[in-house]
Simulated assay, not measured.
Amino acid sequence: MAELITWADFESVDLRAGTIIDVEDFPKARKPAYQLRIDFGKLGILKSSAQITAHYKKEDLIGRQIIAVVNFPKKQIADFMSECLVTGFPDENGDIVLSSIERKVPDGTRLI
């Protein structure tokens, strides 16, 4: 188990629901990845690089609602600027399985 955190620590992580609206291959990434454009409603559209190619085809990701951290600093990955971090869990092979939302919620909704 990780080190215990305070409630304030948890509140500082801004996890939001967003819908993937565009997916492109990312050939310049060191590990196989996609470039995602994600609609977070009033927060706008943010980009992310995600190493999720093992379990997901591009066409299956369009319209899928995901959970992402939206308050990390931007991160340069090759020639791409990632603006949020899509969340997921590694499977038994280390391939990422996306975190999911049981029912659709408005884009931009904050996890509480």
Results as ranks from 00 to 15, higher is better:
R37W: 06
G44Y: 07
R64P: 05
A17G: 08
G41H: 10
D25R: 05
L85M: 13
V70W: 00
D79L: 04
Q76V: 11
K31E: 13
F40A: 05
A50C: 13
I77H: 02
K57Y: 13
G44R: 04
E3G: 04
S12F: 05
G88F: 05
Y56S: 03
A17E: 03
E59P: 07
Q51D: 10
C84G: 02
S49E: 06
I20E: 00
F72Q: 14
R37A: 11
E11P: 03
A54V: 10
S48N: 06
A29H: 05
A17T: 06
H55C: 09
I45W: 02
F80I: 13
G63C: 12
I62A: 14
F72V: 12
T19E: 14
K28M: 03
M81H: 06
F80C: 02
G18Y: 06
T53C: 15
L15V: 12
I66S: 05
I5W: 04
L4K: 09
K75V: 15
L15E: 13
A8S: 11
L61A: 05
P73Q: 13
C84P: 00
K74P: 10
A50L: 06
T87S: 09
I38N: 00
Y56G: 01
L46Q: 11
P27Q: 11
D79M: 06
P27H: 09
Q65E: 08
W7R: 09
F26C: 11
F10M: 15
G88V: 01
Q51S: 09
V69Q: 12
D14I: 15
I20R: 00
D60L: 09
S48P: 02
I52D: 01
L4H: 10
E24S: 13
A50R: 03
T53V: 14
I20W: 00
S48W: 00
N71Q: 12
R64G: 06
Q76R: 09
E24P: 00
A8L: 09
R37D: 12
E59V: 10
D25P: 09
L85G: 00
D25E: 13
V23W: 02
E11F: 07
K75C: 04
K75E: 08
D9H: 11
F80R: 05
R37L: 09
D14R: 12
F10A: 12
G41E: 08
L46Y: 04
L85F: 07
